[in-house]
């Protein structure tokens, strides 16, 4: 065979070799090595699983609050608000009491309105919520000034 056939062939071979070389250095060693994984759905960098597992947990749950604030948790557990997590109003604990030292409590009307603003939806559970019309029921006042969020019983106001 003549030279003009081999020369472009060498160029192609060199190109492929270069590509493989670059790929060798760029692709992480744990890429696509998951045991028994399918090429379509599981071809990935294995340590990415751990990256996501190590993501910071911020909402710690009622049990975490109970460790120090036993009385408060017990108070709310006997009230109709027992279904609400502490952190829904008090904000995520993260590493409280170290970081943050103090949680910022949301006491605004907007928070209560999420459930207790009246909506005319007879077919949904929203209709069963004790509800008010926010524009008529003491507008501009914070709900917590009259209602105790830990024990929202209307008789013990």
């Amino acid at each position: 065979m003549k030279n003009h056939v081999f020369r472009p062939l060498f160029v192609v071979i060199a190109g492929v070799a270069l590509l493989l070389l670059v790929r060798h250095f760029i692709v992480p060693s744990d890429f696509g090595v998951e045991e028994g994984g399918s090429f379509t759905f599981n071809y990935h960098r294995l340590s990415s699983n751990d990256d996501w597992k190590n993501f910071k947990v911020k909402y710690r749950g009622k049990e975490y609050c109970q460790e120090c604030h036993e009385e408060k948790v017990e108070e709310i557990l006997t009230s109709p608000h027992s279904v609400i997590q502490c952190e829904n109003c008090h904000g995520p604990a993260i590493d409280h009491p170290e970081d943050p030292e103090v949680l910022s409590i949301e006491t605004s009307r907007l928070l209560c309105r999420r459930c207790h603003a009246f909506l005319p939806y007879p077919q949904s559970n929203r209709a069963d919520m004790p509800a008010i019309n926010p524009e008529e029921h003491n507008p501009n006042e914070n709900c917590v000034e009259c209602h105790n969020p830990h024990n929202p019983d209307l008789e013990n106001m």
């Binding site: 005319p120 007879p122 929203r126």
Partner: peptide, 22 residues
């Protein structure tokens, strides 16, 4: 921020015309 108003896209819907909502 939760659903606190019965207006949808700025339009008030007459409660008597609602057959279901969810």
């Amino acid at each position: 921020d939760g659903y606190t108003s019965s207006k949808i896209h700025g339009e008030e819907i007459d409660p008597d015309t609602i057959t279901k909502a969810f």
